[in-house]
């Protein structure tokens, strides 16, 4: 079950990468990043059964950093939406060359 959980974490991380590459909606991109963070959390928790409780403490910190990241990232998306009226990243070209 432990090794299988690590394999599940790898699958979820790969699905998250796939979503980041093929979607263009900025909010869904953010959700895919959250999914990758969750895959990392699953790996931490699975390994904490073998290594020690510190893995679960680390998951605690990862969740709080994810909350901070979601708040700031969504605020950035809102302020971009106010300028160009879309969340489709093909229109985000101010810093692109």
């Amino acid at each position: 079950m432990l090794t299988l959980s690590l394999v599940l974490a790898a699958i979820l991380f790969a699905i998250g990468v796939l979503g980041v590459v093929i979607r263009r909606n900025a909010i869904i991109l953010f959700m895919c990043v959250e999914l990758m963070l969750n895959a990392a959390n699953l790996a931490f928790i699975a390994l904490s059964r073998a290594v020690g409780i510190e893995g679960q403490v680390f998951v605690f910190f990862v969740i709080s950093v994810a909350a901070a990241e979601a708040a700031v990232g969504l605020a950035i998306i809102i302020s971009i939406f106010r300028h160009i009226e879309t969340v489709d990243i093909k229109n985000f070209n101010l810093l692109r060359w």
């Binding site: 909350a67 901070a68 990241e69 708040a71 700031v72 969504l74 605020a75 950035i76 809102i78 302020s79």
Partner: peptide, 10 residues
């Protein structure tokens, strides 16, 4: 910092 930053940005 994240809470203040989110308010300032949005």
């Amino acid at each position: 910092v994240a809470a203040i930053g989110a308010v300032v940005l949005a």
